[in-house]
Every structure is written in structure tokens, then in C-alpha cells.
Amino acid sequence: MIGAIHALALLALLPIYFNWTAVIVAIICARLFGLIGINIGYHRLLTHRGFKCPKWLEHGFVVIAICCAEDTPARWVAVHRRHHEKSDEQPDPHSPLAGFFWGHIGWLLVKNPDLSRLGIYDRYAKDILRDPFYLTLERHLWQLKIMLIQLNVFFFAGFLAELAMGGTWSEAVIFALSVVIWAVFVRTVFVWHQTWAVNSLTHMWGYRNYATDEDSRNNWFVGLWAHGEGWHNNHHADQRSARHGHRWWEFDTTYLTIRLLEKCGLAWDVVQPRNLKP
């Protein structure tokens, strides 16, 4: 699937599928889906329980995360919790100590028996599977179904929008396909590499605020690109904290979004850093 989606994203290079509307929609979706789905939904909420929110909102975050095609919630959480437990040791699923390519994408291309055993769910994601909603998402190809629903939503939204602007049926089809290519495939590839850069770059290059027992780093590039996820050394030093940017200049859009939810009464018990750096 990784190769196929990268290949489909390359269709964006064809002039027939280029238009600024599709590009702008893709940029907006890339920022929102990565921030809301992966950063807030999968990472700071499900994996680390850095805050609480209504169940309907939590499930909404997770559906958005599934649209990013980064695996089901229980498996994503299990792999990430294992990473924290065994960080930069041999059992770490994606330590870049085995090479940058391995830490970034290579680990996804090779079947890892340790991650394929059902026991990984019992050890690292039992709390997730207690929720019938998440248990259902592990079955019946729901990840694929949600992806197909997403494709149809973007296609028909683009198709109807072009018709409403006076375009012909053939122009509407071309425009709809351009929206799907940019807002689904290009956006998915962008969010993938945004997430993978946290696994690879922030364990190789950057500065350290805390003397943790692994090689996590705070990386400026990833910090800004991935909405605060790049302040990775801070995160490893205080995993439950919903705030990853610990110094005033470590801008953390994900945390600011959680604070906005808190102000609106949609988040509470937001976990703060235990030893905040001045």
C-alpha cells in the first residue's frame, strides 16, 4: 500500500490534475488531518492519555486518524508504546540506530514477527480494545472501508463544486480527480513523512533539554513541520504531558489546539509537564 499511494500521489505532477484549488485543499487537509487525527487522536489522547474529552469527540479524532492510513488505533498505540518502553534498543520497532532509512520507513516494509503476534495487543493496547468501537475497527476491514468512504467524499465534493461553478460533466470529473489526488494521496504521503520524521530525524539530530536514557532530540524542523511533535526529547522525558514544547520558543500547535478544546469545555484533565524548563 505504501508504494501504491506514493505512486498515485505522483499523478499530481501531471498538468491535467494541477489546479490551485486542489493544492490549497490538500494543504489545509494535511495540516488538519495530521494535527487532529494523528497528533491529538492517536498520540496524545489514545497512546499517552494526556487529556480527556467526550467519547464522541475521541472517536471522531480516531476516524480522522484512520483517514491518514497509519494503521488501526490499537496497533498504532501498541507500536508506539513499545517504542517508548524499548526506545533505541534492539526491540524498538523503528530506532534509526539501525539506519535512517530503517527508522523512517524501512521498518514498515519488513514484517516484524514481534509486532504481528496478538500478544502485543494484550501487553500494550488492552485498554484500547476494551472500547467496542475500537475493537470493531480492528475487524471487518474497517480501515479500508473508511479510506474508500473518504475517496468518495472528496470525489463527489469536487465533482459537485465544479458543476456548481458552471463546469461541464467532463470538467467536473477531471476536477474531482484532481481533488482526490491532491487532498487524499498527496496529503496522505505528506502526513506519513511528517509522522515518520519524528521516528527518524528526532532520534538523530537536534538538541536535548533532558538527559533521557535514549537518543531522543528536539528538532526545530520537525517541531514546526509536525505541529510540536518534533520536541521529542521533551516528550520522552515526560511522556504523559499533553504539552511537548517546554521552552517558550518551542512552538506546539497541537498543545495549543488541546488548550482551545479545554477553553471550549471539550477537554479536561490536561496533563502538564512535571519539570518545565525555564
Rank of each mutant, 00 (worst) to 15 (best):
A26V: 02
W142F: 14
A237N: 09
W268L: 05
F18P: 01
F175V: 04
A226D: 03
A211I: 09
W192Y: 12
G228D: 04
A164Y: 15
G206Y: 12
R49Y: 11
G106S: 07
G60E: 09
F159A: 02
S95M: 03
D122N: 12
M1T: 10
Y17H: 10
N233F: 04
P273L: 08
L261Q: 09
F33W: 13
L109E: 09
A242Q: 04
H6D: 03
I16T: 08
H43W: 05
D269G: 04
G37C: 08
C264R: 14
R123V: 13
K126I: 06
I5C: 04
H83D: 01
V77P: 01
K52Y: 03
W20A: 07
F159C: 01
W225S: 04
K126V: 05
P91Y: 01
D213R: 12
H83W: 04
S178E: 04
L109Q: 11
S95C: 03
K145N: 12
L108V: 08
G166P: 07
S116H: 13
G230E: 01
T257V: 10
H235F: 06
I149F: 14
A176M: 00
A242N: 01
W248N: 05
G3N: 08
C53I: 01
Q90F: 08
A161D: 01
L14Q: 07
A237M: 09
Q239W: 08
C53S: 11
G34W: 08
V222Q: 01
V198R: 02
F100D: 03
I24A: 11
H6W: 08
P15W: 07
V62Y: 00
Q143T: 14
D92H: 06
G167I: 08
G245H: 07
L135Q: 13
E250M: 11
I16A: 13
L115F: 08
I5Y: 14
T168H: 07
N39H: 11
L97A: 11
P96D: 04
V198I: 15
C67A: 06
L224Y: 14
T21V: 12
L45H: 13
W76G: 00
P73E: 03
V179N: 02
V62D: 00
V198D: 05
V189I: 13
T202Q: 01
L11R: 07
R243H: 08
R82Q: 15
A98L: 10
L135F: 09
E162Y: 05
V222T: 09
H84S: 09
L201E: 00
H83N: 03
H232P: 02
A30K: 05
E58I: 01
F156H: 00
W192T: 02
Q90M: 05
N219P: 03
L13D: 11
N218H: 10
R117S: 15
D213K: 13
H244M: 12
F18E: 12
T136E: 15
K126M: 02
G158M: 00
R82T: 04
L35V: 09
P132K: 09
A7S: 14
L10K: 06
D131Y: 07
E250Y: 06
D71F: 04
R75F: 12
I174N: 12
V186H: 02
H94A: 07
R123K: 15
C68L: 10
I5E: 11
L141C: 14
T257C: 15
D238C: 07
